[in-house]
Write a protein that binds this DNA or RNA. Structure first.
Length: 481
RNA sequence: GCUCCCAUCGUCUAGCGGCCUAGGACACAGCCCUCUCAAGGCUGCGGCACGGGUUCAAAUCCCGUUGGGAGUGCCA
């Protein structure tokens, strides 16, 4: 086993928004580094020039920072850029070639396919192994896979054995002289003294190749750990193309970091105890690679949202108001990169923090996502009630609707402007015409808030104010005809 | 096709040979609470893929079947 400092790494390629699966893998590595007082190395694998965009790198750093993996933490190292290590990759390739572990091949992929077809076996058949070709333009460098077996010792899966005969002589250097992922990855891991490679299960099949490379390079392989992949409803690996996987998107919708981290950690692993809602300290204390599940896990947005709702409700009022702010003002949270800030439904100058503070306790128990907050309080900051036509028509369909609303209005003029007295008035009106409060409040609610659902009505009206309430009732009465 | 991985409620999981009549959470349904909607409380629905072994005893160990998934690029 490894002695000395544990060095973990997270090696994403900057090819798009930050993937939730990547977030989970990063979290595993981070937690392990924290537990062992080790190091979390961030390496940006930017060797495929065709797919890389520089802006994604900052996105990765921002995303990591959001979930608590801070670049300024002493356990954090990097970012390193794979592209900066090209010389080391080339040198390793030469070492492998000189040592007889690799050879050049000039076959095109078409030729390889033809040979495979003729032989009835898929893959490259080692045609150039003994041809003694030297380097040259268009020639790829291939690894000479030795005979025998390769046994991978995996921290989550145990012992996995591969028959080397099933591993073809894979490419190390492209025809244009650039290294491919598998070589660059291993060389970088060696250069960065990585001791533990914790990554998604999709990498398990090429682990024997990497292990062979470590050995050919004369270095003892790291501890491997392959964690199950995250899948969609169809049980397919989460993909950027067809699934909603961008961490930034969940953030923009109002998922808070703690909820995201907690939820991600319940996928493939579970905290001990009765509840799944646990803080990060508990997670870092209890997490064990050995207890990570072996099967893929469905990334369930519904459950994520439920977690988020719990986190929101657990906050103090101040905290809650604080996290709501960006959705109310359009500023406050760094929607970095290509992510656009949410649009606020009212003119910014109409927003009043003190007013929101009064209604906030009632919205706190009613939202799962922060992005749902504006629609719940927009009636307070819009010049007029944002009338939902269908709700309006339905509320005013009853024959008692207009008359009862008029009666309420009359009494609203002189009453004490408190939730209790408003409720008493409405109840009184209801009793006189034998209509239950639940039904009777509908016209009043739609007239003043524009919607059939929302925060408690009387508290809302108190915050709205007497004058505005009366004005909106008049408008609604006129509209109802 | 080949290689590898996987298999407990619909979903995420607890369980690592007897504490299991299989526990929790999300979702769903009902009830309570209630000015709408939530939140909260209670209740319910629902699972060890199948077949063989091993054992006094198997969800737990072994083998097979079936079913999923991943990999199979001069992508990472």
């Amino acid at each position: 086993m490894v002695s000395g400092t544990h060095r973990y790494r997270f090696a994403p390629s900057p090819t798009g928004y930050f993937h939730v699966g990547g977030a989970r893998t990063a979290l595993y590595n981070w937690i392990l580094a924290l537990q062992n007082d080790g190091v979390f190395v961030l390496r940006i694998e930017d060797t495929d020039e065709s797919r890389n965009e520089p802006q994604w790198t900052q996105g990765i750093i921002d995303a990591l920072n959001w979930i608590g993996i801070s670049a300024s933490d002493p356990h954090f190292e990097g970012p390193y850029f794979q592209s900066a290590y090209a010389e080391a990759h080339t040198a390793a390739a030469k070492q492998l070639y000189d040592g007889g572990h690799a050879y050049y091949c000039d076959l095109t992929s078409e030729q390889i396919q033809e040979r495979a077809k003729a032989a009835g076996k898929p893959g490259y058949d080692g045609f150039s192994r003994e041809r003694g070709l030297g380097p040259g333009s268009g020639r790829v460098l291939r690894f000479k896979v030795p005979g025998g077996n390769t046994v991978v010792h995996d921290e989550v899966r145990g012992r996995v054995e591969f028959d080397n005969a099933t591993i073809e002589d894979f490419v190390l250097m492209r025809g244009n002289g650039t290294p491919v992922f598998i070589l660059a990855n291993v060389v970088d891991d060696i250069a960065m003294k990585i001791t533990h490679v914790v990554r998604a299960e999709e990498h398990l099949p090429n682990t024997p190749k990497q292990q062979l490379l470590w050995e050919a390079l004369g270095v003892a392989p790291p501890v491997w750990a392959h964690v199950p992949v995250l899948v969609n409803e169809q049980r397919k690996k989460l993909s950027k193309r067809r699934d909603k996987v961008a961490l930034e998107q969940y953030r923009a919708e109002g998922v808070v970091a703690d909820a995201m981290v907690n939820y991600l950690m319940t996928l493939g692993w579970a905290p001990t105890g009765e509840t799944e809602i646990v803080d990060f300290t508990t997670i870092t204390r209890d997490f064990k690679l050995g207890s990570v599940n072996h099967s893929s896990a469905f990334f369930d947005v519904k459950k994520l949202n439920a977690f988020n709702g719990e986190y929101l409700r657990k906050m103090s009022l101040d905290e809650f108001v604080g996290v709501c702010e960006p959705w109310l003002t359009g500023v406050g949270v760094p929607w970095s990169g290509a992510q656009t800030a949410p649009s606020v439904p009212w003119p910014v100058e109409r927003f009043n923090r003190a007013v929101f503070l009064r209604i906030a306790p009632h919205v706190q128990t009613r939202v799962a996502l922060l992005s749902e907050v504006p629609a719940m309080v927009d009636f307070l900051f819009l010049a007029d009630a944002p009338i939902d036509t269908a709700a309006f028509d339905k509320a005013f369909a009853a024959d008692w609707a207009r008359s009862s609303l008029r009666t309420m209005r009359e009494q609203f003029v002189t009453t004490t402007w408190s939730a209790e007295s408003l409720k008493t008035i409405v109840e009184g009106v209801g009793a006189s015409i034998d209509v239950k409060l639940g039904k009777l409040q509908a016209p009043l609610r739609v007239a003043t808030t524009g919607r059939s659902v929302g925060p408690p009505l009387f508290e809302s009206l108190v915050v709205l104010g007497r004058d505005e309430t009366l004005r909106r009732i008049d408008i609604a009465l006129a509209r109802a005809g």
